[in-house]
């Protein structure tokens, strides 16, 4: 029973922190654009409003897809150690996380393709190619860390970096961190790699047909994805902190970097994005791998 309660607690905690980050992110982007941004709790208001609206569904597949995408991401979140304790302890959860992360986006893709809007179909094909793009460098970086720590369990990797800041993986493997940072930017669909939610070209891609509650669900999925991805990076490179506050603080630093990059860069075309992802971060990750192996 306690177990289930912990799972729910983690779920709500992830959504709360994710929305909180989104609100602050919009405020920072606004300040970069020399304007007063929305209040920091704006994301909560948006989600609240969206859930109060009537929504239009096309068919059953769309409902299933949306719920599946949120469930996929929350499932990924369960395996990520947050400040020392994880919801479900397994020995090699890094591999499970890598697999489960794809579920979230597949769910979204299925829901949106069912909506039949050509813009959405293009958006979905872009999202999946983008996924192809960022997973290759990200997994090479992970491979490197697994080899060096001899284990694929995130907790052990995180604990191996305890102690002073000097033995954080970020300091020991700076190249790996840069490659992971670029891949993170693409994973979250932030600006240089947000060809799938490109409002100027395909009218906000997959989210074209989502209204009311579905858009609310998409918002939550995005919030949880922010939380999960930053949590993975914190555990891998910045040594998962012992108590919650330092953990959230570190997550916020990572999110800050992505928001800053988002505010000042336009987006790549989809083939340019994948070409960029497979050349720049990939070569850094391979270099890192070579350094680790020898």
């Amino acid at each position: 029973m306690i177990e289930i309660l912990r799972v729910f607690l983690f779920g709500f905690f992830a959504i709360f922190i994710g929305l909180f980050f989104m609100g602050i992110g919009r405020k920072i982007i606004a300040r970069i654009q020399l304007r007063l941004g929305p209040p920091f709790y704006q994301a909560f208001l948006d989600v609240g409003k969206l859930f109060s609206r009537k929504s239009i569904t096309h068919n059953f597949v769309m409902d299933l897809g949306m719920v599946m995408s949120l469930a996929g991401l929350v499932a990924t979140m369960l395996f990520v150690p947050i400040a020392g304790h994880t919801a479900i302890k397994t020995s090699s959860n890094l591999i499970v996380i890598m697999y489960l992360m794809a579920i979230g986006y597949l769910g979204m893709a299925m829901a949106v393709a069912a909506s039949g809007n050509p813009n959405a179909t293009i958006g979905v094909s872009r999202a999946l190619t983008m996924m192809l793009g960022y997973e290759v460098p990200f997994f090479t970086v992970m491979l490197g860390l697994i080899i060096i720590n001899g284990t694929s369990s995130l907790e052990l990797i995180a604990n191996s970096q305890a102690g002073s800041i000097l033995n954080w993986n970020m300091i020991k493997f700076p190249l790996g961190f840069i490659a992971a940072e670029i891949a993170l930017q693409a994973m979250m669909g932030e600006k240089p790699f947000d060809a799938m939610i490109a409002p100027a070209e395909i009218a906000s891609g997959p989210m074209v047909e989502l209204s009311g509650k579905y858009l609310g669900l998409a918002f939550l999925t995005h919030a949880v994805s922010i939380f999960v991805e930053t949590a993975i990076i914190v555990n891998l490179f910045m040594g998962g902190a012992s108590n919650i506050f330092t953990f959230v603080l570190k997550q916020f630093e990572i999110y800050l970097i992505t928001v800053i990059i988002e505010a000042v860069f336009p987006r790549f075309k989809i083939e340019q994005a994948v070409k960029f992802l497979w050349t720049v971060p990939m070569s850094i990750a391979l270099l890192q791998l070579v350094l680790i192996v020898f």
Binding site: I28, R31, I32, L34, L36, I260, A263, V264, F265
Partner: peptide, 16 residues
């Protein structure tokens, strides 16, 4: 482009 980040420390132009 990163130099525009200095706008963070400037007063926003918005008229409330």
């Amino acid at each position: 482009p990163l130099t525009t980040l200095k706008n963070l420390f400037k007063r926003p132009m918005t008229i409330k």
